Computed example of a mutant assay.
Amino acid sequence: MSERSYRAAIIGTGGIANAHAQAVANSGGRAELVAVADVDAGRAREFAAKYGESRAYGNAEELLREEELDVVHLCTPPQSHAPLAIACLEAGVTALVEKPPTLSLAEFDAVIEAERRSTAHVATVLQHRFGPGAVRLRRMAAAGELGRPLVATALTQWYRDEDYYAVPWRGTWESEGGGPTMGHGIHQFDLLLSILGPWSEVTAVAARQARSVDTEDVSMALVTFENGAVATVVNSVLSPRQTSELRFDYENATIEVEHLYGYTDDDWTVTPAPGHEDVKALWGADPSGESSGHTGWLAAVLDALDRGEAPPVTAADTRRTMEFIAALYASAFTGERVRSGQITADSPFALRMDGTGAPWRNQ
């Protein structure tokens, strides 16, 4: 590993930017926040002063032109992610993009093409992959200690009221790309996909039940994986008792986590199948006090850059998740089962997540 320090900038200084700035501060000198930008120049200056007096800019173009950077954290609303990521890549700067990374699969493919032309990389911020529990689960599954994966559930049942959707860019296909499937549940089902591997087909429903938005406010999917496992995925912003839950039923044990916006080891439970009590001991052999937050994710990013590799979550990894989202919407809005690889470049669901149109659009 090198001992270099990476020059970092943040574009967009809203709420989530604080988690990114804190992750840089927690990096032990491996990264340094040297600049920030926001369309609200005053807010950019306040944010810069809060996190070490870094330089503040009123737009991304000036920041990229004036600064020598290694990485840029994109913390803007979703509709600007793709153009900003492409601008970073064209400047030779690695883009670390908050979720959802783009509004559509076609937009994401444009980012992938820009990455191919660049010396830099693009990675999506899906930090729950990097919490110690998820890392341990993937390791044990790969070692065969859990047996075959059989059944899984991924539940994101959150509550967002009308005041939440008063922010202009929320709740529309044009600015957010989708509802809770895109902006909320992505963390849980991305973690599901990272553990169970490639998905093969999805059957889904989506509805607008209660919120005055253009997008769905709830979706559900039945998913089959290439390894034979089957899963249920629920994404909701209508649930007063909020929870984020994942459950994996393997031959040898049930592994579960329940949290809200980030987990620690205390949020996981292990229930061995009869005759496999050793699984619990294996799980508890390397306890950790870390959480599944941005600090652990950034450490994994810097580790990869030190090795000269693309940082996680790579474009290839993210594309599988984005294709899953497009397939979920395609199944929900057409009533058909959708298979992996079925959504080609000319599909309406590649161009927009609502594809042929949500059934409630004319109501």
Results as ranks from 00 to 15, higher is better:
residue 125 V to N: 11
residue 134 A to M: 15
residue 183 G to P: 14
residue 107 E to N: 14
residue 306 D to I: 13
residue 83 P to C: 04
residue 335 G to Y: 05
residue 355 G to E: 05
residue 59 N to G: 06
residue 95 A to W: 03
residue 198 P to I: 07
residue 261 Y to C: 03
residue 265 D to M: 03
residue 11 I to Y: 01
residue 32 E to C: 11
residue 18 N to E: 08
residue 214 D to T: 04
residue 134 A to K: 02
residue 192 L to V: 05
residue 318 T to R: 02
residue 243 T to N: 08
residue 88 C to L: 04
residue 196 L to W: 04
residue 183 G to L: 04
residue 36 V to W: 09
residue 201 E to C: 09
residue 311 P to D: 05
residue 257 V to M: 12
residue 58 G to E: 01
residue 102 T to S: 15
residue 133 G to V: 09
residue 92 G to T: 14
residue 358 A to W: 05
residue 68 E to C: 08
residue 219 S to T: 14
residue 357 G to Q: 07
residue 354 D to P: 05
residue 219 S to K: 06
residue 343 I to D: 02
residue 331 S to Y: 03
residue 196 L to I: 08
residue 118 S to A: 12
residue 349 F to S: 05
residue 252 N to P: 00
residue 212 S to T: 10
residue 350 A to Q: 06
residue 221 A to W: 12
residue 324 F to A: 01
residue 134 A to D: 02
residue 107 E to P: 13
residue 158 W to K: 08
residue 31 A to Q: 13
residue 302 L to W: 11
residue 277 E to N: 05
residue 291 S to T: 15
residue 33 L to Y: 05
residue 99 K to D: 00
residue 35 A to Q: 11
residue 232 T to K: 10
residue 9 A to D: 12
residue 39 V to R: 03
residue 257 V to R: 06
residue 146 L to I: 13
residue 169 W to F: 15
residue 215 T to C: 14
residue 125 V to K: 10
residue 209 Q to F: 03
residue 353 M to Q: 12
residue 60 A to V: 06
residue 262 G to S: 15
residue 338 V to I: 15
residue 148 R to P: 02
residue 99 K to R: 11
residue 111 V to H: 09
residue 90 E to F: 12
residue 225 F to N: 06
residue 99 K to Y: 00
residue 241 R to P: 15
residue 355 G to I: 05
residue 223 V to F: 11
residue 321 T to H: 10
residue 283 W to K: 03
residue 345 A to E: 14
residue 43 R to A: 08
residue 167 V to Y: 13
residue 236 S to N: 08
residue 49 A to Q: 15
residue 221 A to N: 11
residue 138 R to L: 11
residue 349 F to D: 04
residue 259 H to R: 01
residue 221 A to Q: 10
residue 38 D to W: 12
residue 166 A to Y: 00
residue 310 A to Q: 15
residue 146 L to Y: 09
residue 14 G to L: 07
residue 164 Y to G: 09
residue 311 P to G: 08
residue 102 T to I: 06
residue 182 M to W: 03
residue 339 R to P: 00
residue 74 L to F: 05
residue 111 V to R: 11
residue 105 L to K: 11
residue 266 D to T: 05
residue 41 A to N: 09
residue 155 L to D: 14
residue 199 W to E: 02
residue 289 G to I: 09
residue 286 D to G: 07
residue 108 F to N: 02
residue 61 E to R: 14
residue 21 A to T: 15
residue 18 N to P: 00
residue 246 L to Y: 01
residue 166 A to K: 15
residue 314 T to L: 14
residue 140 M to H: 14
residue 157 Q to Y: 01
residue 94 T to I: 13
residue 183 G to E: 03
residue 323 E to I: 05
residue 190 D to Y: 01
residue 13 T to K: 00
residue 52 G to D: 06
residue 265 D to Y: 01
residue 34 V to N: 07
residue 109 D to Q: 13
residue 338 V to N: 10
residue 147 G to S: 02
residue 338 V to L: 10
residue 339 R to V: 01
residue 101 P to Q: 05
residue 294 H to N: 08
residue 48 A to R: 00
residue 336 E to S: 11
residue 206 A to R: 02
residue 248 F to M: 08
residue 157 Q to V: 08
residue 223 V to S: 04
residue 308 G to L: 08
residue 271 T to F: 06
residue 341 G to H: 12
residue 109 D to M: 07
residue 156 T to R: 13
residue 135 V to M: 09
residue 275 G to V: 14
residue 266 D to P: 01
residue 305 L to K: 06
residue 194 S to F: 05
